[in-house]
Simulated assay, not measured.
Amino acid sequence: MTTSTRSDTNVNAAAVATFLIFAMNGLVFASWAARIPAVTEALSLTSGQMGTLLLCTAVGSLMALPSAGWVVGRIGTAGTVRLAGIVAGAAGAAIAFSLMAASVPGTAIALFFFGIGIGLWDVAQNIEGADVEHRLKRTIMPQFHAAFSGGAFVGALIGAGLSQLGVGLPEHLLVIAGLAVLLALTVPRYFLPHEASGVETLDDGAPAPKGPTAWRDGRTLLIGVVVLGATLTEGAGNDWIAKAAVDGLGTSEATGALLFALFVAAMTGMRFLGGKVIDRFGRVAVLRASMAAAALGLALFVFAGNVVLAGLGAALWGVGAALAFPMGMSAAADDPKHAAARVSVVSTIGYVAFLAGPPLLGYLGDQTGIHMALLAIGLPILVALLLAGVAKPLRAK
């Protein structure tokens, strides 16, 4: 009984720690995303040029993501989050100083390393979250992602408030960078212990092939395609709602940040409710309903003629974007023996869209206006809806 109690306590502590790490990740990301209009103004950039800067973040993350599973295997999820927090915090400070100097190259380099830190952080927290969910034996991954959205919501509100007060983005980022490093160094001490990368075994006890095995698993790759479409939906909202509101509706920067906050708030609320919704209606049905809601919300936001309707569209868009990524992580982790490798693969595929898609929308925005360019994500949403059946839970063996 003592061992069981200690084990339950450890898992619960790990769940709280994972929740906090997700929340801090969201706060860091939104502190940047909510004030992208301020960056374009400070550096005198067009939407396409801003897209290039965002692409620097994407390149950094996409270079880090494929090796993230290996890094976790070597130093564990706790060690990886600590490393990622230091890298992201240092990069955040570098972004701040580059903006003070109005240096586009300096900002680009800093964003590259910011992307590396965020990429490592994301994969590590999702592997930890999948492990905690498996040990708790109930759907909790959406709540971890709700913590990310909640942190992003707080970050967006802080960004809107500081913008309204005239506080500069560099000062804002310096404070956030210090907080990120502090939490990343302390909170992971409560993570579950992870053994160093060993030899995985198959059902007959034979050693499993290393490296690309998960990349050859058809179900894992299709889940990755679904997550790719879903994360493009979320990433486009995170990066461009504030800017699209300013350009398309003629709102102020503060109002644009508030619409972004509304998008994130809706996503956060749905993620808190998501576990119960998924357990009741099933993963596939909820995934299909999510993509349909995202498509409807996107259309309403783009074609709305006023802030009220745009706000309603942003909220519905956020509801639709809420659950697809956490459901993809849970689906990838259905087989505990291969969970870490498959979660890493699906995360990598998903973040290709999450990080690389929004910059490409920026280039398209130079031709059509960023407001109308958002319609381009309708096709990936449809693909995710059509392939939703691959997320059906595996039968227990």
Results as ranks from 00 to 15, higher is better:
L258F: 06
A101S: 03
A339G: 11
D247M: 12
T18V: 01
G159M: 15
N12Y: 13
L364N: 00
G237Q: 07
I116L: 00
D366I: 01
L394S: 14
A160R: 15
L382P: 05
A214F: 11
A254E: 08
F263K: 07
V28S: 05
D247H: 15
R216D: 00
A331K: 09
G51C: 06
T255K: 10
L323V: 13
A242G: 07
G155K: 15
R271Q: 10
A376G: 13
V383P: 02
A373W: 06
I223V: 15
T348E: 03
V307I: 08
A322Q: 08
T201C: 04
L287S: 15
S67G: 04
H134V: 12
L83Y: 01
S163E: 11
A285L: 15
A130T: 12
F325I: 14
A96K: 09
A184M: 06
P207V: 05
L185I: 00
W240R: 11
R82P: 04
V308G: 12
V345S: 14
P170Q: 05
I349G: 01
S197W: 08
F112G: 00
L249K: 10
V11C: 04
Q367E: 04
I176R: 05
L386S: 14
A257D: 15
L228C: 07
R74I: 01
L202K: 10
A102W: 11
G320P: 10
A58K: 11
E195Y: 05
G26T: 04
V39R: 07
E171W: 02
G369D: 10
A384H: 06
A333K: 05
P188F: 07
T213R: 15
L262A: 14
N238V: 08
I377S: 02
A384Q: 08
V383W: 12
A391W: 10
G117H: 02
F301W: 13
R395Y: 05
F263Y: 11
A266G: 10
F113D: 04
A230M: 11
H145C: 06
N25H: 07
R82Y: 00
P105A: 00
G313P: 09
K210P: 03
I118C: 00
A242Q: 10
F301N: 13
D122G: 00
W70N: 00
L298T: 09
T233L: 05
A295E: 07
L192K: 14
T5V: 09
L45I: 14
L222P: 10
C56R: 06
D279W: 11
Y363L: 03
G51S: 07
L316N: 13
D247P: 14
